[in-house]
Deep mutational scan, measured.
Amino acid sequence: VSVELPAPSSWKKLFYPNKVGSVKKTEVVFVAPTGEEISNRKQLEQYLKSHPGNPAIAEFDWTTSG
């Protein structure tokens, strides 16, 4: 189950709350306009370098507050 949070234009930000008793931590995933899922800052940096014209990296908020 995921919750969609505010994201930069043409992107989606999905929040996957951890299940009770789960060892997996809460996860935030950005979905690029191409449909590619980005789950960490390093991936995001690589994606933005190879896909010019996207929002600046500073516009991506990895917190769950939206």
Score class of each variant (00 low, 15 high):
46 Q>Y: 10
1 V>N: 11
22 S>R: 08
42 K>E: 14
9 S>E: 13
31 V>C: 07
51 H>E: 02
44 L>Q: 01
32 A>N: 01
54 N>Q: 10
5 L>E: 05
24 K>N: 15
48 L>G: 00
3 V>M: 09
57 I>E: 07
7 A>V: 05
20 V>D: 13
11 W>V: 01
12 K>N: 04
52 P>G: 05
17 P>W: 15
26 T>Y: 15
26 T>M: 13
13 K>E: 03
66 G>M: 11
35 G>R: 03
15 F>K: 04
26 T>I: 12
42 K>I: 13
37 E>Q: 13
34 T>Q: 02
60 F>N: 01
41 R>H: 12
60 F>V: 02
55 P>V: 06
60 F>A: 01
47 Y>T: 00
1 V>Y: 12
15 F>S: 06
8 P>T: 04
18 N>D: 09
23 V>K: 12
2 S>G: 12
40 N>G: 07
51 H>P: 00
8 P>M: 06
7 A>I: 04
35 G>F: 03
66 G>A: 12
20 V>K: 10
35 G>S: 03
7 A>E: 02
16 Y>A: 06
3 V>P: 06
65 S>Q: 11
41 R>T: 10
48 L>S: 01
51 H>Q: 03
54 N>C: 05
49 K>H: 10
26 T>P: 14
43 Q>H: 08
53 G>Q: 05
13 K>M: 03
44 L>A: 00
4 E>C: 10
62 W>C: 03
52 P>M: 05
34 T>N: 07
56 A>C: 08
6 P>D: 08
24 K>L: 14
14 L>M: 09
55 P>F: 05
60 F>H: 01
54 N>S: 12
35 G>H: 03
62 W>E: 01
45 E>K: 11
32 A>V: 01
38 I>G: 00
21 G>R: 04
9 S>G: 15
43 Q>Y: 05
15 F>G: 04
29 V>L: 07
57 I>W: 06
28 V>Y: 04
60 F>R: 01
52 P>C: 03
47 Y>L: 00
57 I>K: 05
13 K>F: 03
44 L>E: 00
64 T>C: 09
26 T>H: 14
66 G>V: 11
50 S>Q: 10
47 Y>W: 05
11 W>A: 01
55 P>Y: 06
34 T>G: 06
22 S>I: 08
21 G>H: 09
51 H>V: 02
22 S>F: 09
37 E>H: 15
49 K>Y: 11
62 W>N: 02
49 K>I: 11
51 H>N: 07
23 V>Y: 11
53 G>T: 05
5 L>M: 11
14 L>V: 07
59 E>H: 06
32 A>D: 00
37 E>D: 05
40 N>E: 07
21 G>F: 04
17 P>E: 11
46 Q>N: 10
59 E>W: 06
63 T>R: 09
53 G>S: 06
14 L>Q: 04
18 N>C: 14
12 K>I: 09
13 K>N: 01
17 P>K: 11
31 V>I: 15
52 P>R: 04
51 H>C: 03
23 V>M: 14
18 N>W: 13
53 G>I: 04
10 S>P: 15
49 K>T: 10
4 E>D: 08
